[in-house]
């Protein structure tokens, strides 16, 4: 007669099955966020925000009153303050194309040999998984004049402005 506290074969098997079932139940019932999945979410966000800027830039005249270049040209050069002052025309367009997203927009351009970055739309502090997309537009004095904007350009001057949008999901 063996009096030691040993594990019998059947009990061992039962314990093993129990442990495996527990591990299986936990892994199957919760959605594990693997790096690939959060990557996919970021890719989606980046894709949509760069699409929105692109679509706004290329939009034909029959669709929109002002395309991206005209929106930028019509800026009155007043920096945005939260929440009252922002670039209304651009905000209206982006809000229509990206419902459910929040975004801040900056304009970056060279003035007197220095890179100037001005905030034009502020919707709050960007979250952890924010993405930035960019689009360049070229302004002429003619466009600025037509849109009644605040830029002062010579008649033969071209100004390249980088539209920088930081977008995030809430």
């Amino acid at each position: 007669m063996d009096n030691k506290a040993q594990l019998h074969t059947l009990e061992g098997l039962a314990a093993a099955v129990l442990m495996t079932l527990t591990v299986l139940a936990i892994t199957q019932s919760t959605m594990i966020v693997t790096p690939q999945n959060s990557l996919a979410v970021n890719v989606q966000l980046e894709q949509m925000s760069s699409d929105a800027l692109g679509v706004l830039d290329m939009a034909p005249i029959s669709l929109v009153q002002y395309n991206l270049t005209e929106c930028v040209a019509g800026w009155n050069k007043t920096e945005a303050t939260y929440p009252t002052i922002k670039h209304e025309k651009l905000d209206d367009a982006l809000w229509h194309l990206l419902p459910g997203l929040l975004y801040n927009v900056d304009f970056a351009y060279i003035e007197n040999g220095n890179l100037t970055v001005e905030k034009v739309i502020i919707n709050g502090a960007p979250g952890d998984n924010s993405v930035v997309s960019r689009r360049y537009v070229t302004l002429t004095n003619q466009t600025v004049h037509m849109m009644d904007g605040g830029w002062s350009l010579q008649d033969d001057e071209l100004k390249v402005v980088e539209v920088r949008m930081t977008a995030w999901k809430v």
Binding site: V43, Q44, Q47, M48, D51, V55, M58, A59, L98
Partner: peptide, 9 residues
């Protein structure tokens, strides 16, 4: 499901 949304005209 893998899902991708694009903004288009």
């Amino acid at each position: 499901i893998a899902k991708i949304t694009r903004v288009v005209l």
